[in-house]
Amino acid sequence: MTELLRVAGLTKHFPVGQGGPLNRGKAMLRAVDDVNFGVGSGETLGLVGESGCGKSTVGRMLLRLIEPTTGRIEFEGENLVELAPEAMRARRRHMQIVFQDPYGALNPRMTVEDIIKEPIEIHRTLNGRDARDRVLELLERVGLVAEHARRYPHEFSGGQRQRIGIARALALNPRFIVCDEPVSALDVSIQAQIVNLLQDLQADLGLTYLFIAHDLGVVKHISDRVAVMYLGKIVEIGAKRALYAEPLHPYTQALIAAVPEAKPRASRRKAAITGEIPSALNPPKGCRFHTRCPKVMPVCREVEPRTTEPKPGHLVACHLYPQEAPAPTPAA
């Protein structure tokens, strides 16, 4: 499988402190810190983690909706971070995003047709009738009908709005789509419809997804490989089956154990990890998970673990695994 996207050393530090000119830059929110991963053409990489772990920031940096502090984002061999704004705008044809909130993601004053047509207008890929035909084709593609084109977003349910958002993302025939929690805000019975739709579109159009979510069940269902984030770092990344069956990182283990299963008393067990997620303003020294880790060792408090590859294709950043052999860093 060829790699469509390769991210290296991706970092985002937000300056915090109340905006005045005199007290700027007092503290840094280390939202994303030295993140590395690749996404193969046609695959789905799931990105999971709890709130504030930086997973959404990663997704938005890929499209440069948020500018990275440092790092490389290689898309089809080209480093997007170095592109001038004009050139980046042209690249956006190939990478799109689907948002979480089906209410906030559609301009309430535009008709569905205008919403879906906007990317086509911007890039002038089609004109007049052709553009309109394309809108109707896209509506049908996502399970809506032509008569929906003239309606406004408020006339639709959450699931239907998410379909409209997906149609907009597809308008320019992108190769890569960031799905930023696309089903988290939907009712359970609607979630499954949208997940199936995304899978069908991937199969038919050869799309590549970065699927960001906090629901481990959904991520497992849709992904080929899964990356787990904690406090701005990727702690583990591997093929779906291996990662769920034999999670290597204690955080991944705890996360999987914490999911309430729809089986009564299957697992009325004690919480695997205690305590709260520390602040990204002042992340713990050493391994960032050491404050909550059930297997914490003295070294974890001092030294940040390197990412190693204990099994082929299964990477983890944890002192439980031999630190000598660093993971082969793929050629830039």
Binding site: L255, A258, K270, A271, A272, I273, E276
Partner: peptide, 11 residues
């Protein structure tokens, strides 16, 4: 709440 916190609260 996050899933690890959810587990703590339910317990």
């Amino acid at each position: 709440l996050d899933v690890t916190i959810q587990q703590q609260i339910l317990e």
